[in-house]
Computed example of a mutant assay.
Amino acid sequence: MIRHISPETMPKPASRYSQIALAEGATRRLEISGQIGIHPDGTLAVGLAAQLDVALANVDRALAAVGMGRDNLMKITVYLTENSPDAVATYRARRDLWVGDAPPPAATLLIVAGLASPALLVEVDAVAAG
């Protein structure tokens, strides 16, 4: 069982994420490698919002491959190559839409100088348990 907690004694999350994700009695732990905005057919999505959507969909595919779903997510880490208020707002909006009604996982956002290719604007890795 995973408990998603944002204690009153900690700063309130800026959007849909939890300050703490605690797995108790979990028998499986899943580490998902960094997912990028490339569709299963090998094509690259165009633009930050589209790459975010595809990378998050790839996280969903990884979870489904082992019989898990978003309820199993403990943490996501997102790497963006653009450091602007618009990029951060786009990330938060796309992530919040993706999380939806699921318990919001713990989350970290990093702004990086670059990824494996200059065409890549975002990478998402995740940890799940269940």
Rank of each mutant, 00 (worst) to 15 (best):
V66L: 06
D86C: 01
A119D: 15
T43N: 09
D53G: 15
Q51I: 01
R94I: 14
A21K: 06
T43K: 12
I5C: 06
V46R: 10
D86V: 11
L121W: 00
L121V: 03
M74Y: 03
R28S: 03
D60V: 06
A129L: 02
Y17G: 12
I32M: 10
A49P: 11
A107Q: 12
P105H: 12
R61G: 07
A102V: 09
D53R: 15
A21R: 00
E123Y: 00
A21H: 02
A102E: 05
V54M: 00
S15C: 10
A126E: 09
P13D: 13
Y17E: 13
L109M: 08
P40A: 04
P40L: 07
N58M: 01
A21I: 07
A102S: 15
A113G: 13
H4T: 05
L56R: 01
P13R: 05
L52N: 10
T90L: 06
D86R: 08
D71W: 11
L48C: 04
G47N: 03
M1I: 03
G47T: 08
T90N: 08
G114P: 14
A64R: 08
A113N: 14
A116V: 07
A57W: 00
H39F: 14
E82S: 07
V66K: 05
V122C: 13
T108L: 13
I111V: 14
A57H: 00
A106P: 06
A50N: 04
W98Y: 14
Q51V: 01
S84Y: 11
V88Q: 11
E31K: 13
A26N: 08
G42N: 02
V122Q: 10
M10H: 05
K75F: 11
A113C: 00
P118D: 03
I20H: 11
S6C: 02
R61W: 01
I76R: 06
A87V: 05
Q51H: 07
L121I: 06
V112A: 09
Q35L: 02
I2S: 01
Y79F: 15
Q35V: 02
V99R: 10
L52V: 07
A45S: 04
V124S: 00
I111F: 10
L115E: 01
V99M: 03
L48H: 08
A55L: 10
S6K: 05
N83M: 14
A62C: 11
E24S: 13
T81H: 12
A87D: 06
T27C: 07
G34W: 11
A116R: 14
M68S: 02
R61V: 07
R92T: 15
A55Y: 01
E24G: 12
L63I: 00
A89G: 09
I36F: 03
L120D: 05
L56G: 03
L22S: 07
S18E: 12
L52G: 03
P7H: 06
T81V: 15
I20V: 15
G37E: 02
N83E: 14
R94N: 09
K75W: 05
S6Y: 08
P85G: 08
V122F: 11
L56T: 02
R92V: 10
I36C: 07
I32W: 08
S15I: 05
A50W: 04
T90C: 15
E8I: 12
R61H: 12
A129Y: 06
A87H: 12
H39T: 15
S18A: 11
T108C: 09
L63S: 00
Y79V: 03
S117R: 12
G114N: 09
L73T: 06
R29C: 08
D41V: 04
L44S: 01
S84T: 15
I20C: 09
V127R: 12
L56S: 00
S84F: 07
